[in-house]
Amino acid sequence: MSEDVLKNSQSLKICHLYPEVLNLYGDRGNIKCLSQRLAWRGIDCTVDQCHLGEKKDLSQYDIFFIGGGQDFEQEVLLADLKSGKGDEIKSAIADGKVFLCICGGYQMMGHYYETHDGVKCEFLGAVDFYTKGGDTRMIGNYAFECGVESGGSTIVGFENHSGKTYLGKDVSPLGTVLAGFGNNGEDHTEGIRYKNVFGTYSHGPVLPKNPAFADTLIKTALERKYGSSLLEPLSDKFEKAAHEKILQQVLSHTTSGD
């Protein structure tokens, strides 16, 4: 079969988990970015939403996206996870499906969130890490370098969290902080990479300005599904301009002024 025929038959299914709750800080731009970059390469893509209380066969999807939400709404979501969806998510992870989890959605993958006054809020526990409430808000543009297993590219984004995340022994960070806080502001780690789960604090949204990272997710999903993944390069002129602009600013510790 020639390369062209093979490519035209390829398709990916994306599932946006809890879009009505975890949909802040422009994070829906990530879905837009994935589906556009697939469309520009002639790869079929469908995007479904899976809402609170909704029953869906999660095994049919290749990429899952979970965004960040308001604290107030996170409680609603935990109840839904416990009613069975959580187990389906865990088996999708075991199956090597690609997950992109941002901020609140990222924290949710860990064991628990411990508040200031020692109250533990049980989370999904799909990946070995936990988060503790901190005193200061870690906020601002930041940059980190992905590990080679996650593509090795440099990522710029906007972090805004007070929770400090600490990784278990067998979990790798998504990358190393170049400037900013990252997971906890202490150990220079940012995010997680476990199987094909990519967790990060980066809003922005993270994918449009970091096209190499977006393509890493796409490649990982295609490889899992088809065993190969040759992605046509895109021009990425605007993408690179936005990336470079904020990277220079972050690395030189400057802002746009008052």
């Binding site: 802040l24 422009g26 994070d27 837009k32 906020i139 906007f158 809003h203 802002t255 746009s256 008052d258």
Partner: peptide, 16 residues
Amino acid sequence: LNDKTADGHDISWIWD
């Protein structure tokens, strides 16, 4: 689009 202090340094809202 500016991201000065009075605007907020986070401009992600444009995606919403």
